[in-house]
Amino acid sequence: MTHQTAGGRAKASEMEHAIRSHIRKNLEADPVRFRKMSQRLNDILKDFGQQWDQIIEQLQAIIDELRSEASEGDETISDIPEIYLPFLRTVLAASSADETTPDDRLHTLHEVTRLAVDRIIEEVSANRSLWSSFKMADQENLRSEIFEIIFDAQIQGFGVDEAEALADQLMQQAKANEDKLRAA
């Protein structure tokens, strides 16, 4: 192994660990985005074998994307404020939306996200200790309201079970994003 190979491997390893650490810290706040990032990272490491220069180049692209916070090439996300994006990604993934999803359905999904997040922001701002164990009733009330927003939207293919599961996911995400939501 040449010195250059060892250096490339070490640099790639350092970059990989930094990316994995960032993914771990942010997974709950934006699970859809960071699961995709994790998959991309695994694919790069698998596809490029020992080609350290190419691996470093690909890993740098992920780092640049993480720094910019933007997820390029996603036509299903329009000009929606940044605070809504992690939640929108979750709603889109739960409803299997992609580039082929009709605009009216996408509009409904955006609207559901906006209503749910607005309600969460309102509650988080008014209820400083919402996530503490003695506020379980408040948490359950909020979860029920989010469920109703989702269920009332009559999203195609969404029954009670899907709406319940999505409400739970959005609540977990809200807890992980509490500081950002409170600042919104």
Results as ranks from 00 to 15, higher is better:
137 A>C: 02
141 N>G: 13
83 I>Y: 03
71 S>G: 12
43 D>N: 15
177 N>E: 10
12 A>R: 00
19 I>G: 11
66 L>V: 03
150 I>V: 05
20 R>H: 06
129 S>R: 13
36 K>S: 06
4 Q>N: 10
156 Q>E: 15
6 A>C: 08
78 S>V: 13
155 I>P: 04
58 Q>F: 12
40 R>Q: 04
80 I>D: 07
100 T>R: 13
12 A>N: 01
134 F>Q: 10
70 A>P: 05
91 V>I: 00
173 Q>N: 06
69 E>N: 11
109 L>A: 03
134 F>R: 09
68 S>E: 07
142 L>E: 00
139 Q>F: 02
121 I>P: 08
87 F>Y: 05
105 R>K: 12
128 R>G: 10
182 R>E: 13
69 E>G: 08
104 D>M: 06
152 D>N: 15
181 L>I: 02
73 G>Y: 10
150 I>N: 02
112 V>M: 04
72 E>Y: 14
130 L>V: 09
54 Q>S: 15
134 F>V: 08
100 T>W: 10
61 A>E: 12
149 I>Y: 08
13 S>M: 09
1 M>D: 12
88 L>F: 00
115 L>R: 14
99 E>H: 07
55 I>V: 15
41 L>P: 00
141 N>W: 12
104 D>N: 06
54 Q>A: 14
177 N>R: 10
70 A>D: 13
155 I>W: 05
69 E>I: 03
171 M>F: 15
170 L>W: 03
89 R>F: 00
26 N>E: 02
108 T>K: 07
70 A>Y: 11
84 Y>P: 10
114 R>E: 13
181 L>G: 02
171 M>V: 14
24 R>P: 05
152 D>Y: 08
163 A>W: 05
96 S>D: 15
20 R>C: 04
48 F>P: 05
73 G>N: 14
71 S>W: 13
100 T>N: 14
46 K>P: 01
9 R>I: 08
171 M>N: 11
169 Q>N: 08
65 E>H: 10
99 E>D: 11
61 A>V: 05
66 L>A: 04
147 F>S: 03
132 S>C: 06
166 L>W: 04
125 S>K: 15
83 I>D: 01
137 A>K: 13
165 A>H: 09
78 S>W: 07
26 N>T: 03
136 M>W: 05
100 T>K: 13
166 L>R: 02
176 A>R: 04
28 E>M: 00
174 A>Y: 00
112 V>F: 06
89 R>C: 00
2 T>A: 11
165 A>R: 10
115 L>P: 04
166 L>F: 03
31 P>Q: 01
29 A>L: 05
82 E>Q: 10
41 L>V: 00
53 D>N: 13
148 E>H: 14
105 R>D: 09
36 K>E: 08
131 W>V: 08
11 K>M: 12
93 A>H: 05
32 V>E: 01
34 F>P: 03
165 A>P: 04
128 R>Y: 12
138 D>M: 08
48 F>E: 15
135 K>Y: 04
50 Q>K: 15
42 N>C: 07
135 K>W: 05
175 K>I: 00
170 L>N: 04
7 G>F: 11
129 S>H: 14
172 Q>H: 09
171 M>W: 11
77 I>V: 14
154 Q>F: 06
168 D>S: 07
